[in-house]
Amino acid sequence: MESGLMHHVALWLAAFLTLGIFSFLYRDNTWYKVCEAIFVGISAGYWFVAYFWDNLYTKFWVGVWVTPMADRPDDWYVLYVGAALGILMLLRLVPKVGWISRWPLAFIVGATAGLYLVTYFASNVMLQIEDTVRPIFGAENDAPIYEIIGNIVVAVGTFTGLIYFFFSKEHRGAFGRAAKVGIFFLMITFGASFGYTVMSRMSLLIGRMDFLFSDWLKLIK
């Protein structure tokens, strides 16, 4: 596929960029700034190209011009609405009618608010509540002791955790104590998630070091 020379150039380039980013750990320097500048330019270009071909060309252009009438979905003309909103967005560049660009913005915000309201209510609130409600001794009354403790912990933790989030009631007295227990659970959650993540982050570094040692320096096979 790639000629030998190309392969070597690519390898050294990748190594140069990798070490350049790593050098930031020591301190900000020219090498890092070059890498940063390249990264910003290349990636902004990358995303525009991806948007252009995937969204503007494949979704819009193909949808309204290329696809034969017979193969179009019934509601193909909705694509024009999208494009019209997009063009309204560009009116921002014309100072006199710039305020019209708030329309597509209002459209997006309204739609997002509407969509999230129901989907998150269903999946985050209803489903989680339903999942919390379960018999503490197990469905068949045969749960081992640690599972019983686990079930109690989940019920109590969810309950007190929610109490912590109450905004309109002062955290005092019994309510305050429950909220304190809630924070206790939240802290365990944060500690556990953090500890769990350390693993994940190390793998990424191992991947990069592996590249430097085996692909670039060929120290290991």
Binding site: L117, F121, N124, Q128, T132, G161, L162, G182, T189
Partner: peptide
């Protein structure tokens, strides 16, 4: 156990916050 409980409380809160 505890992690699940904390996650749930956070998720339910987020759902209501979004509403």
């Amino acid at each position: 156990g505890p992690n699940l409980a904390g996650q749930r409380a956070i998720m339910i809160g987020i759902g209501l916050g979004i509403v």
